[in-house]
């Protein structure tokens, strides 16, 4: 009896949660395949009329730039974040806590403030020509690192240091022990972190706001600029395209490592 009530509560909560997450996405998807500028209820039919404008250079170029920036910043975040996570996991020094908090600090600061201060910095240094992809990558790395730090950190928690020690004992150099024992076990954590870093970069507005060059914007900035003057369901089509793109990337990544599976137990 009791357990049936519990099950009902659990099912209701689950459905509510799923619905809560799904509704905005369904709305975007629906907008992209109906004929009206402002979708009406009840729907007046199906149409692909908005898609013609979406799949043009106007939108595909920002999308490509976003993908490049996201890829580069995810790669850098992966490198720095993994190195930091390893240092934190294996280190014994007193400064560990402070170091870890410091690495996550960019998440605490409003991103728009970071963006602004970066602009002020490059102006001060007379280096405004860096504005564009270079600075975009550099700032996006800041918010990518904490994600990598977390996922790789969790991976490392499951990696017993004695395994590396055993490898050294059997004749592996320090690098080779890391390469053949620790790194393979960190891999799924690294994939998960890199994917998070990619997504937060790809969708980022605030950090990019002052840092995109006039002639080339990232996708979120381009969407924002467009909406300042007009609105069209084309935006929904663009959004759907980028979601599909990210899903494809996540799918490919998960072929190499199950993304949710970055926690290792001794017995695995």
């Amino acid at each position: 009896m009791n357990s049936r009530v519990l099950r009902a509560v659990r099912t209701t909560l689950l459905v509510l949660t799923l619905g809560f997450i799904a509704v905005p996405m369904l709305m975007v998807g629906w907008t992209s395949i109906q004929p009206d500028t402002y979708p009406a209820f009840p729907p007046s039919g199906l149409s692909l009329r908005w898609w013609g404008a979406a799949l043009t250079r106007e939108w595909l170029l920002p999308m490509a730039l976003s993908a490049q920036v996201a890829l580069a910043s995810a790669a850098c975040a992966l490198l720095f974040g993994s190195a930091a996570a390893y240092t934190l996991a294996r280190g014994t020094g007193r400064g560990r806590r402070a170091f870890e908090a410091f690495l996550a600090a960019p998440l605490l600061l409003p991103e728009i403030v970071i963006s602004l201060s970066v602009v002020q910095l490059v102006s001060m240094l007379d280096a405004r020509r860096l504005i564009g992809p270079t600075l975009l990558v550099a700032t996006h790395v800041l918010i990518g690192i904490p994600f990598v730090l977390r996922t790789v950190g969790v991976s490392l928690l499951g990696i017993n240091p004695v395994w590396e020690r055993a490898a050294r004992d059997l004749g592996a150099s320090a690098w080779w022990a890391f390469r053949t024992v620790t790194l393979p076990l960190m891999r799924s954590g690294m994939f998960a972190g890199a994917l998070f870093a990619f997504i937060v970069s790809f969708n980022n507005v605030e950090l990019s706001l002052f840092l995109t060059a006039r002639d080339s914007s990232t996708l979120p900035i381009r969407l924002l600029q467009y909406m300042e003057y007009e609105y069209s369901p084309t935006l929904a089509c663009v959004a759907v395209t980028s979601v599909v793109g990210i899903c494809v990337i996540a799918g490919v990544a998960s072929r190499f490592a199950r993304l949710t599976d970055f926690i290792h137990g001794e017995s695995k």
Partner: peptide, 19 residues
Amino acid sequence: PPDRRDTAMVFQQYALFPH
């Protein structure tokens, strides 16, 4: 360093490589 010494250890917690 350990890799230059011709010793081999059997550890209390087995220390087998799980992957």
